[in-house]
């Protein structure tokens, strides 16, 4: 079992390089998610088809309407319950499925460590506090200014989010960037992300928080480093971000 999981882990590393020693290339949360999701989906589909296919095959093969099988020791009414043999086969199948499940999870664990800690080579993480309220998001930057329902960040830059809530439980998530963190009153959950493509992304609330839950959205605007510097300067001066360039794509 150990051997099998080691081999499989190596295969995994070949397909999805997941080592992140300092100085290595970094990966976005989105690409980590996509590749792990793909492997799970492929294996899950394969296992599902094999197991359900095997069920259907046996259901067809031993159907009474075909009249081919005779029971050698049919159960009778009132017998004390007892089992049938066949334990060996049972444990073999159980063992194989256990190996698949455990391997998958253990292998995905290295990605978890990465997702928890973030890439280490970035010293100058930008930190933004995210405060949810019914029904919107405040983004508090390091300059102390607050931007409501608009988060502007530079591309290719590690951004750390410290997420909390002012009233009830929300969950901050940006689907396209594959980031999410619970927004809980009195607690601060931390997550990070790197956006490697400019554009306007959609942030939504993922925990039912009241009648306006469906409308609790914000824009995440990813712009080039220079544009960001300009916008941030104006933000520091006036307390609100200027409009982003018109050519940004909605994502």
């Amino acid at each position: 079992m150990r051997w099998a999981s080691d081999r499989l882990a190596q295969v995994g590393e070949f397909v999805v390089p997941l080592s992140h020693a300092p100085g290595d290339e970094w990966r976005t949360q989105a690409s980590v998610f996509e590749e792990i999701y793909f492997i799970f989906l492929a294996l899950g589909t394969a296992v599902g088809i094999v197991v359900i296919g095997y069920m259907l095959y046996n259901g067809w093969k031993y159907s009474a309407s075909k009249g081919t099988t005779e029971l050698d020791d049919p159960p009778v009414l009132g017998e004390l319950p007892r089992g049938e043999g066949g334990g060996k086969k049972l444990f073999l199948s159980f063992g194989i499925s256990a190996v698949i499940v455990i391997t998958l999870i253990v292998w995905s664990y290295s990605a978890l460590i990465y997702a928890e800690q973030g890439p280490e080579e970035f010293e100058d993480n930008m930190v933004v506090e995210v405060e949810g309220y019914t029904f919107g998001w405040d983004f508090i930057y390091e300059n102390g200014e607050t931007s409501t329902n608009t988060l502007v960040v530079p591309e290719d830059h590690v951004v750390t989010l410290e997420v909390t809530s002012r009233d009830v439980w929300h969950t901050f998530g940006v689907t396209e960037l594959r980031i999410k963190a619970d927004s809980i009153p009195g607690q601060t959950a931390t997550t990070w992300f790197i956006a490697d493509e400019q554009g306007i992304y959609l942030a939504e609330c993922f925990e039912l928080c009241g009648a306006g839950h469906s409308f609790m959205e914000a824009d995440v605007i990813v712009v080039s480093e220079e544009t960001f510097e300009e916008m941030y300067d104006e933000f520091t001066e006036t307390g609100s971000f200027p409009d982003p360039p018109d050519d940004l794509e909605e994502r």
Binding site: F33, I36, Y37, F40, L104, S108, A111, A115, K180
Partner: peptide, 13 residues
């Protein structure tokens, strides 16, 4: 099982 893998659960939550 997808949800059991924490790194996927982060997105599925």
């Amino acid at each position: 099982v997808f949800l059991g893998a924490i790194v996927l659960d982060y997105e599925f939550r």
